[in-house]
């Protein structure tokens, strides 16, 4: 496959993207506008993440792509295949072996390490968007650190539901400055954002924004002192396959009589644990 440049994008576009990424790293949590390109997959299907990954990839990289925590969901397969084809890089399903991980909606359970890059696909980068539809307004609110409104939303949740009713895309504050949307990861994953040794990059293609969390950045989930943030998941369940108690679980309906089971959403984590258990048994 040689009709396209390495990793699909031309070098001038990659330079533009890298400048935006560097700026994003320099101002953690700030949304840097960039001039996105049309990609050969639809907007909303990970074009932002794909562009960020393309700008970061070098031929020596090993790429892992997950969607909903799994390497084998359709869109993850499609994106992994795309890069294998246009960049010829090695791919893997093992979190520990990957140098770049592109993800949609999850952070892997296996802790990331220094030198790894985690690229998030972001649908709506603006954490204030559902309170205020206008970009001109939200930009001003960020610039002036005018964040009363989002706290009002948390107050309203607490008044109505007795807790902050946000299950995913739970807003965080970065280094005490910018409020940031961590992309639609479940709030279970929020603590992994904090002080992570890996570089975390966020790409929103349709909305033309890149933002970043450099390694070891302070990331706090918004809350109240008397209603502190909790990283919740399915209550009292363990993975039916590997028995994990500490991982995020997907619920699977197994019959039409209300039967269901819970399994790890991170398929690599689950498989690794199963392999280790088999080894122990043998």
């Amino acid at each position: 496959m040689s009709d396209y440049n390495f990793a699909y994008l031309d070098e001038a576009t990659k330079r533009m993207l890298r400048r935006a990424i560097l700026k994003a790293v320099a101002i953690p949590g700030y949304q840097v506008p960039f001039s996105r390109r049309e990609m050969p997959m639809p907007y909303g299907w990970g074009t932002g993440g794909v562009q960020v990954t393309a700008a970061c990839l070098v031929p020596e990289d090993t790429l892992k792509v997950i969607d909903q925590g799994a390497d084998d969901t359709t869109n993850a397969v499609s994106i992994r295949k795309f890069f294998a084809r246009v960049a010829g890089i090695a791919t893997t399903e093992a979190t520990a072996e990957a140098t770049i991980i592109q993800t949609r909606h999850r952070i892997p359970e296996t802790p990331l390490t220094e030198g790894q890059i985690l690229v998030f696909q972001v649908p709506i980068p603006e954490p204030l968007r559902f309170l205020e539809p206008r970009e001109t307004e939200t930009r001003t609110m960020h610039a002036l650190e005018d964040y009363g409104l989002i706290q009002v939303r948390l107050y309203e949740d607490t008044a109505r539901h007795g807790e902050i009713a946000r299950a995913y895309a739970y807003p965080v504050r970065v280094e005490g400055r910018y409020i940031m949307d961590p992309s639609p990861i479940p709030k279970f994953d929020n603590p992994k954002l904090h002080n992570a040794p890996a570089l975390q990059l966020f790409g929103a293609g349709r909305e033309c924004r890149i933002y970043a969390l450099p390694p070891f950045t302070r990331v706090e989930s918004l809350d109240f002192e008397d209603y502190p943030f909790t990283a919740s998941k399915a209550a009292g369940q363990t993975c039916a396959i590997c028995g994990a108690e500490d991982s995020y679980l997907d619920e699977v309906i197994i019959d039409d009589a209300g039967g269901r089971m819970f399994v790890c959403s991170d398929t690599d984590y689950c498989a690794t644990r199963c392999a280790a258990q088999a080894e122990d048994a043998a």
Binding site: G148, Q151, V152, Y155, D223, F224, E225, Y227
Partner: peptide
């Protein structure tokens, strides 16, 4: 809240 109150 805009001036920093965080105790519900």
């Amino acid at each position: 809240m805009a001036v920093g109150a965080r105790h519900y």
